[in-house]
């Protein structure tokens, strides 16, 4: 059985080590926070916060306390606040150990596309380009194929890039792939998924 969304998030949580400062994107990456267990992980919200807490209880929402998705959140005992220039200074400066984010396409050379589809409504890249260019490690969590069954892991991205050669590891419903100089390398297969099935579902070259 391939992994479901929660299992992908659980697998992604294994990428995080004690003491890490991490930025989680929207969608499946947000679920990763549910699986860090006892590990001492500090979540960054790029609008200016380290130590992001869970959603508030009803009636305790604070309009001055939101995450990068503009959702109301809470603070923790460790929380610190700072301005946007400082926030992206720590991102660009490589102080954030890892970013876990979703993607539309990833190429075998590590190119990432996740911010626009030409001809469709363009909302903007927000902080995605800064994150993938700056953080220590970029981990993509996404479905292996799109809703038409077409591989999202390609020889070359077709969509406008968010970053060039930035992805380190890809976690999909089928397993875990690493971007290496020689091409994509299978690190792990989801239970019941064979190497041949993984290769068949992937347009990019697997070495």
């Amino acid at each position: 059985m391939p992994w479901d969304r929660n299992q992908m998030a659980e697998r992604a949580a294994q990428e995080l080590d004690d003491g890490m400062y991490v930025n989680l994107g929207i969608g499946i990456p947000t679920l990763v926070a549910n699986y860090v267990g006892d590990k001492d992980i500090t979540l960054q919200s790029e609008n200016g916060m380290l130590g992001m807490g869970p959603f508030p209880y009803e009636g305790e929402e604070d309009p001055d306390l939101i995450n990068a998705g503009k959702q109301t959140i809470t603070e923790l005992a460790r929380t610190s606040y700072f301005d946007s220039a400082t926030s992206f200074g720590m991102i660009r400066g490589g102080k954030i150990a890892a970013a876990i984010l979703g993607a539309m396409e990833v190429a075998e050379n590590g190119d990432l596309a996740n911010w626009m589809i030409p001809g469709k409504l363009v909302k903007g890249m927000g902080g995605a380009m800064d994150l993938v260019a700056g953080v220590g490690r970029v981990i993509v969590v996404m479905d292996h194929t799109n809703k038409h069954g077409v591989s999202k892991i390609l020889k070359r991205c077709t969509l406008p890039l968010t970053g060039r050669g930035v992805v380190d590891r890809i976690i999909t419903n089928l397993g875990v792939l690493d971007v290496t100089h020689k091409g994509l390398h299978i690190q792990e297969l989801a239970p019941g998924v064979t190497r041949d099935e993984m290769i068949a579902a992937t347009e990019a070259t697997i070495v």
């Binding site: 946007s84 220039a85 926030s87 380009m129 800064d130 406008p160 970053g163």
Partner: peptide, 30 residues
Amino acid sequence: FNPQGTLAERMRAGGCGIPGFYTKTGVGTV
């Protein structure tokens, strides 16, 4: 469109008398 951190740094730089800076953000993109 400006990447979020680039926009913030462009403002900070302007305020600090820095007319330009180099960044990795956006390399290889539009």
